Simulated assay, not measured.
Amino acid sequence: MRWIGGLRVPLMLAAVAMTTSAQAVEGDAERGRVKADTCLGCHAIPSYSNAYPNYHVPKVGGQNEAYIISALLAYRSGSRAHSTMHNNALALSDQDIADIAAFFSSVGK
């Protein structure tokens, strides 16, 4: 395998393929509002921190739609480590991810 900028080529191609497939699905913010109900329990609370392990939970309202899609795909695949987010993202389809990203990118602006 070839290395490019510290990454193996197949890993880069897989990431591009995952991002492309989810971005090909158009998100609907209203459907996303309903689907994001569980997300709001952590990501809509100002200055929220988890008790154990202790970490800051980011607010995602107003975040870039493509970034949210990329993050959720990475959590779903396990390439971005966080057990709670991984478990939540596993249940999401590409359409769910696009809808949730459309919702969060539309709020908090």
Rank of each mutant, 00 (worst) to 15 (best):
Lys35Pro: 03
Gly62Asp: 11
Asn54Tyr: 11
Arg80Tyr: 13
Leu92His: 10
Asn88Glu: 11
Asp99Phe: 02
Ile4Gln: 02
Arg2Met: 10
Leu90Met: 11
Cys39Gly: 01
Arg8Met: 03
Val107Thr: 08
Asp37Val: 14
Ala29Ile: 03
Ala51Asn: 15
Pro46Asp: 13
Ser105Phe: 01
Lys59Asn: 07
Leu90Arg: 11
Thr19Pro: 01
Gly32Gln: 04
Ala29Trp: 05
Val16Tyr: 07
Thr84His: 15
Glu30Ser: 15
Ala44Leu: 07
Thr38Gly: 10
Leu73His: 01
Val60Trp: 15
Ala15Ser: 14
Ser83Tyr: 04
Lys109His: 12
Ile45His: 02
Ala91Leu: 08
Val16Met: 07
Ser79Met: 04
Ile4Leu: 05
Pro58Thr: 05
Arg80Lys: 12
Gly41Pro: 00
Leu73Asp: 00
Tyr67Gln: 15
Tyr48Asp: 04
Val16His: 09
Arg8Trp: 12
Gly78Trp: 01
Gln23Lys: 14
His43Gln: 09
Ser93Ala: 03
Lys109Leu: 08
Gly32His: 05
Gly78Val: 04
Asp99Arg: 13
Asp28Gln: 09
Gly78Gln: 00
Val9Phe: 15
Ser106Asn: 08
Val107Tyr: 05
Ser105Glu: 00
Asn54Val: 15
Leu40Pro: 07
Ile4Val: 14
Asn64Asp: 12
Lys109Ala: 14
Gly62Trp: 00
Arg80His: 02
Asn87Gln: 11
Leu7His: 13
Val34Tyr: 01
Val16Trp: 11
Ser77Ile: 00
Ala91Pro: 03
Gln63Arg: 13
Ile68Thr: 05
Tyr52Phe: 07
Arg2Val: 05
Arg31Ser: 09
Leu7Gln: 08
Ser70Val: 08
Gln63Phe: 10
Ala74Gly: 05
Asp37Pro: 06
Leu13Cys: 04
Gly41Cys: 11
Val60Gln: 04
Ile100Cys: 05
Asn50Glu: 04
Arg8Ser: 10
